[in-house]
């Protein structure tokens, strides 16, 4: 029996009788992070990182949550489980599973660069590594965050000089908090969409130190938004909600902006190549650091990345999962998310 199996409800550990990021309701769910394609509603018991719990409460309501810190071990039916920073968003974790000396690691979503808020990715040695591959093609290579932050700041200053409002499109959990670090350096007139404000309040209540943000409401006047920065989720892009900010320029923060055609399709004025996922080199580096002798590749360019690993002496296979890229999910179902 494999330590982790790929079932129709998600990644399953039969010995421990728990699932990791199940996409259907189960008894025991271990959650890598609070994005909606990984943390789903309806399970009886949830195990997650301490920082993830308030976010799950916000998104899934009150449930039976058990929390652990990074590198703290718990046993589930004799299977040793521990969480390790994945660097993707606040609280995001890799799940290490050990039984009888055999170690598997489920990466969840991750990135290698330390973004200042999500914790620094920790390579964990294992026999079998289950990795994501959202940006698993060599065309995806990220520049350092600092460089992208400078682009964003330059863009905001440029908009201000033309009396334009700067609307930054960023996913409400993760990217929005990340870009705040860049935005606060050039302005303190920062407004956010309701979905981002909810996350913000939750994080403030959980003790996070975040700059002062203002929520855009129907009462917000046009004058107040003059030359401001507005942060909004992808689902708000192109909706009548944006009219209030006129004249404005739209900047999208996403790894998909790497390819010109994507930026054109999104009809954006500026695309910032900023992703919370590992780029091609990051994925390769992470896989090598685990020293795993078997790699399973999930959501993204799994066929290409698995084939490349096999050609380079690392045994790899692809696995179909129901995880998507949350940015994709947003883009395709804009308006239908519950935010």
């Amino acid at each position: 029996m494999a330590l982790i199996e790929f079932s129709d409800k998600g990644l399953y550990c039969p010995i421990g009788n728990f699932f990791i990021d199940p996409w259907k309701p189960v008894d025991n769910a271990v959650i890598t992070h609070a994005h909606s394609d990984h943390a789903r509603w309806g399970s009886k018991n949830y195990l997650c990182h301490t920082q993830t719990k308030p976010l799950l409460q916000l998104r899934l309501g009150n449930n039976n949550y058990q929390t652990v810190d990074w590198n703290e071990s718990v046993y589930i039916n004799q299977v040793k489980v521990s969480l390790h920073p994945a660097g993707h968003i606040i609280g995001s974790s890799q799940i290490r599973v050990e039984y009888n000396g055999e170690v598997w690691v489920v990466s969840g979503d991750y990135k290698l660069e330390n973004d200042g808020i999500s914790g620094e990715f920790e390579p964990v040695k294992c026999h079998t590594f289950i990795t994501e591959s959202t940006f698993g093609l060599p065309i995806y290579k990220w520049k350092p965050q600092q460089e992208i932050f400078q682009q964003i700041q330059q863009w905001i200053l440029n908009n201000q000089s033309q009396n334009k409002c700067s609307v930054l499109i960023a996913y409400s959990l993760g990217k929005a908090q990340r870009v705040l670090q860049a935005v606060t350096k050039v302005t303190d007139n920062i407004w956010v969409h309701g979905a981002i404000y909810n996350t913000y309040e939750t994080l403030i209540n959980a003790g996070w130190q975040l700059p002062l943000l203002k929520r855009v409401t129907p009462e917000t006047t046009k004058e107040a938004l003059h030359n401001a920065v507005v942060i909004a989720p992808p689902s708000a892009d192109g909706t009548p909600w944006m009219k209030k900010f006129y004249t404005y320029s739209v900047g999208v923060c996403s790894g998909w902006m790497q390819v010109r055609g994507n930026a054109r399709r999104r009809n954006v004025d500026a695309g910032f190549v900023l992703s919370d996922h590992a780029d091609w080199n990051g994925l390769l580096q992470a896989v090598k650091a685990t020293e795993a002798n078997k790699v399973f590749v999930t959501h993204g360019f799994q066929s290409a990345f698995a084939r490349h690993l096999n050609e380079h002496g690392i045994e790899a296979a692809e696995v179909k999962t129901a995880f998507g890229d949350e940015e994709d999910v947003q883009e395709n179902n804009s308006g239908s998310t519950n935010e």
Binding site: L137, I139, V259, G261, R307
Partner: peptide, 25 residues
Amino acid sequence: MQPWLFEECYNTVGDLAETIALLLS
């Protein structure tokens, strides 16, 4: 780079000039 991987990249980018620019590092 292996030709198949180049083709995967090209199919995703949809433009040869851009694919090459992205791959040359």
